[in-house]
Write a protein that binds this DNA or RNA. Sequence first.
DNA 1: TTGTATGCGTTATCAC
DNA 2: GTGATAACGCATACAA
Lengths: 346, 346
Amino acid sequence: MPATLRDVATHAQVSLRTVSNVIRGYTHVSDAMRKKVMDAITELDYRPNLVARTLRTGRTGVLALVVPEIDLPYFSTLARHVIDAAAELGYRVMIDQTGPDHDTERELFTSTDRRMLFDGILFAPLVTKTELDAMTITSSIPFVLLGEYEFDGTFDHVAIDNFQAAYDATSHLIGLGRTRIAAIGSQPDQAYATPQLRTAGYQQALLDAGITPDPALIRPAGHYRRSDGYEAARALLEAPEHPDAVFCYSDLLAIGALRGLDDAGLSVPDDIAVIGIDDIDEGVYSRPSLSTVSLDIPFIAHQAVAHLVRRIDDPDTPAEEVVAPHRLMPRESTLGATADQKTEAA
Amino acid sequence: MPATLRDVATHAQVSLRTVSNVIRGYTHVSDAMRKKVMDAITELDYRPNLVARTLRTGRTGVLALVVPEIDLPYFSTLARHVIDAAAELGYRVMIDQTGPDHDTERELFTSTDRRMLFDGILFAPLVTKTELDAMTITSSIPFVLLGEYEFDGTFDHVAIDNFQAAYDATSHLIGLGRTRIAAIGSQPDQAYATPQLRTAGYQQALLDAGITPDPALIRPAGHYRRSDGYEAARALLEAPEHPDAVFCYSDLLAIGALRGLDDAGLSVPDDIAVIGIDDIDEGVYSRPSLSTVSLDIPFIAHQAVAHLVRRIDDPDTPAEEVVAPHRLMPRESTLGATADQKTEAA
DNA sequence: TTGTATGCGTTATCAC
DNA sequence: GTGATAACGCATACAA
């Protein structure tokens, strides 16, 4: 049976209040008292009961991180850094998966069970604008949106510039002399912000280079998994004229495409160049290594947590937007194997 | 301000007790009462305060999952299935990372903050036997150990038969006619159970085939990351006589080795065959696709959660051991690319 | 500076 | 079957 505050108080011959003060680092307490209390604490091996404290203060010290699926490399890496960043600020992290279809996303905000278990939510799933609005209306819990770029001042936002990232990736392919450039990753349901922005950036880059975008070269992907990239790449090759480059909306799609092109007997990048977005470790070791647009995930995680905690501390802070930096990371899948061998360790 | 039990009671003109009974599905309550209460609940949009409930019952409904790093594919997949399995039983999951060096593992059990925040711990890190003993002594919280195979009846255990898995992988290489078979993944510190068992299985397979194990062919790996596999593979090639096969203690090591061998100008599997353990998705799409020993992670997760919850409900249940099945999954990295093209979707 | 008393929202123990 | 009431462990308004 763990010792309670009262046990410590009686043991140290002081009042409950004094013990509480000492524990919470209250300044105005005499050294003699403090020592007496500290001794009692160590002797009884007392640890505060966080549940009781929470009931009293309303703070749980827990953040929720909501992702589609935690075993997608991008999200597991994000989770890792979010957990670390949260720990630095004294918070722990609970992970919620919405699943490939995000039916549970709304439920999360309204559900019985989940509400009072955390102080704030980091929301990093695929979600449409309408759904998002519906959720924020019904919810008053502090939260930060990750990965969508459509700031409207309603809530805090941390994301890369998706349009520009897609633009940069496509421009890289154009700079290599490619002209029939395909895109993999548009969503059948055009309501999602991220793929929309990436398609737009891709198209703009083509236009700026004097290339007319060919709708037939834009392939949807149900999800952002390897298998989706694989299928999309194979489908792309069924058209009469092959593309000479593919821009994938995620590295995982690109990894799948790489394999799909190889199975079709095509050589990357000689026949077709491939580039993705995310810069997951897997792409550093793949063969060929994967050109990509690198996101600064530690930065994103850190910013997101910092903003969320700030909002928890002061709910009235005006909503802010953080645009995370991205940078082109050319590797073998566009430059060719001769460029160099594996250049980085992950 | 959220509605409380009291609000519901006054609104429904009944006592607190009755409302609580209805909510908790107590049987002996009249239909009239139940309806009256339910109406009040929906009208006031009442949701029970879980913190208050926890303070009263001592149950948080939260499990902790402790892993080295959540962004290692094996652990993120494990996490995914643990979260799902826990959800089915009404539990949520909190993830703790111990980091590459497991300094924080002990702290987890003794630390102030973390104790009363969850009902049980799923422990899936690298850990030595001595450390484990020390931890279990100081802790009384229900927990289940994942991934080590050294059952001594002290606590619940879920793991594959590491010895046999290594034996099977090595035997597969032997069956292919390979004779100079290296191993990557032994730990410099021999106190860890898993690598030890895998080394033992590897050596036994060699012995049973009449091959004398060559200590020079057993390479340590600091961690189980791609870069460690890469380095180990390169180091292996510096010896005068090359191995003709490599058994890696994890798929991630094998992925790194694959790239390392390729950078050295060697062909897999013609020059060197490679096999791993884990069956991560990445290996299905790599080039060549990675032969491996497949673990049934959903099964492992499900068993682990089930045992933990059982122990939470009845702390006196005798400790049990679950040996999860594994099965050899030969792919291109041992069979060659001609065998077939990508056979499965992940 | 320290002690006393009350309440956070729930469940459980007792009567009725 | 249902109603009052104590208690879970802590933090704080108030009093001293």
